[in-house]
Deep mutational scan, measured.
Amino acid sequence: NQASVVANQLIPINTALALVMMRSEVVTPVGIPAEDIPRLVSMQVNRAVPLGTTLMPDMVKGYA
């Protein structure tokens, strides 16, 4: 199964993503693939992302 990017902490709106904020986990539904974690670093989220939430492409500015 494909691992997705999951929030490792609460990520406030407009926060630039850092490695420590993300982990990979096999979840349903599938979100952003875990292999894209390096690409996500320094991109901003466009909403608050609670701990344990799967990151979806529409949550990250400039990802989709």
Results as ranks from 00 to 15, higher is better:
Asn1Asp: 15
Ala3Phe: 08
Ala3Leu: 12
Ser4Ile: 02
Ser4Asp: 01
Ser4Gly: 04
Val5Met: 01
Val5Ser: 01
Val5Asp: 02
Val6Glu: 01
Val6Asp: 00
Ala7Pro: 00
Ala7Asn: 00
Asn8Glu: 10
Asn8Tyr: 03
Leu10Met: 10
Leu10Lys: 10
Ile11Val: 06
Ile11Trp: 02
Asn14Lys: 06
Thr15Ile: 08
Thr15Gln: 09
Thr15Pro: 02
Ala16Phe: 12
Ala16Ile: 15
Leu17Lys: 00
Ala18Arg: 09
Ala18Lys: 11
Ala18Pro: 00
Leu19His: 14
Leu19Arg: 12
Leu19Ala: 11
Leu19Cys: 08
Val20Gly: 10
Met21Gln: 05
Met22His: 00
Met22Ala: 02
Arg23Ala: 07
Arg23Phe: 05
Arg23Asn: 10
Ser24Asn: 06
Ser24Val: 11
Glu25Pro: 00
Glu25Met: 08
Glu25Tyr: 05
Val26Asp: 15
Val27Asp: 03
Val27Ile: 06
Thr28Gly: 05
Pro29Phe: 03
Pro29His: 04
Pro29Val: 07
Val30Arg: 04
Gly31Ala: 02
Gly31His: 02
Gly31Arg: 01
Ile32Gln: 00
Pro33Trp: 09
Ala34His: 08
Ala34Gly: 13
Ile37Gly: 05
Ile37Pro: 00
Pro38Arg: 07
Arg39Thr: 09
Arg39Glu: 05
Arg39Trp: 12
Arg39Met: 15
Arg39Phe: 11
Leu40Phe: 01
Val41Ala: 05
Ser42Pro: 02
Ser42Val: 03
Ser42Gly: 15
Ser42His: 14
Ser42Asn: 12
Met43Gly: 03
Met43Tyr: 09
Met43Ser: 08
Met43Val: 05
Met43Thr: 04
Met43Gln: 10
Gln44Asp: 04
Gln44Glu: 12
Val45Ser: 05
Val45Asn: 01
Asn46Val: 11
Asn46Phe: 06
Asn46Lys: 10
Asn46Arg: 10
Arg47Cys: 08
Ala48Val: 14
Ala48Asp: 12
Ala48Ser: 14
Ala48Thr: 13
Val49Gly: 01
Pro50Gln: 11
Pro50Thr: 09
Gly52Cys: 04
Gly52Arg: 04
Gly52Met: 05
Thr53Ser: 14
Thr54Cys: 05
Leu55Ala: 02
Leu55Ser: 02
Met56Glu: 07
Met56Ile: 07
Met56Trp: 05
Pro57Asn: 06
Pro57Glu: 08
Met59Ile: 06
Val60Asn: 02
Val60Trp: 00
Gly62Ser: 11
Gly62Trp: 07
Tyr63Cys: 05
Tyr63Glu: 03
Tyr63Thr: 03
Ala64Gln: 15
Ala64Trp: 05
Ala64Ile: 13
Ala64Tyr: 06
